[in-house]
Structure formats: structure tokens, C-alpha cells
């Protein structure tokens, strides 16, 4: 298998496919996990961006001389 994975043991592609098939429940299991990831990664990323922009804005204003802001 040129360029393939020569170290893969016998039958591991099948077991990988089995893993993704989730015993026939693939749609329900993977949709649940995907939507969970979207929501939780989403709120973490949103919070991080919010902190960054608030820091930039607040610190820039705080560095300006008094009365200018």
C-alpha cells in the first residue's frame, strides 16, 4: 500500500468503521456530540474573544491622559 499506513494491524480499518457506525446509532450519537461541541466550544471561544477586546479597549482608554476619554 504505497503512501498508506503500513503499520496498521489486520482488520483495524473495519474496527474504525465499526467505531464510527456506533452499532447503528451513529446519527444520534455523533449529532449529540457535534452539537455539544459547537455549543461548548462556542461559548468558550466567545468568552475569550470578549475578554481580549474588553482588555484592549479598557487598557487603551486607561493609558490615555485623564479627561480625554
Amino acid at each position: 500500500m504505497p503512501g498508506g499506513w503500513p503499520n496498521l494491524p489486520e482488520g483495524s480499518v473495519t474496527s474504525l468503521l465499526e467505531f464510527f457506525a456506533m452499532g447503528g446509532y451513529a446519527f444520534y450519537v455523533w449529532t449529540s456530540y457535534a452539537l455539544t461541541a459547537v455549543l461548548l466550544v462556542g461559548i468558550v471561544g466567545w468568552s475569550a474573544r470578549q475578554l481580549k477586546s474588553t482588555q484592549q479597549r479598557t487598557f487603551r482608554r486607561a493609558r490615555q491622559p485623564r479627561g480625554k476619554s
Binding site: 468558550v44 468568552s47 470578549q50 475578554l51 479598557t58 486607561a62
Partner: peptide, 28 residues
């Protein structure tokens, strides 16, 4: 983890004009 991040954001929004924020900004 998320609570720490969000708490920091809200504190800065609330206390943006406090002296400790200006000191923090000066150190940055």
C-alpha cells in the same frame, strides 16, 4: 475555566475607570 474568563471581562467593564486598572494598563 469559563467562569474565570467571563468574570475578568465583567470586572474590567465595571471597573474600567478605576485606578488599579490604569496601573495594570501602565504595566502592560
Amino acid at each position: 475555566y469559563n467562569l474565570m474568563i467571563r468574570t475578568r471581562t465583567l470586572i474590567l467593564e465595571k471597573e474600567g475607570r478605576a485606578r488599579w486598572v490604569a496601573e495594570l494598563a501602565g504595566g502592560e
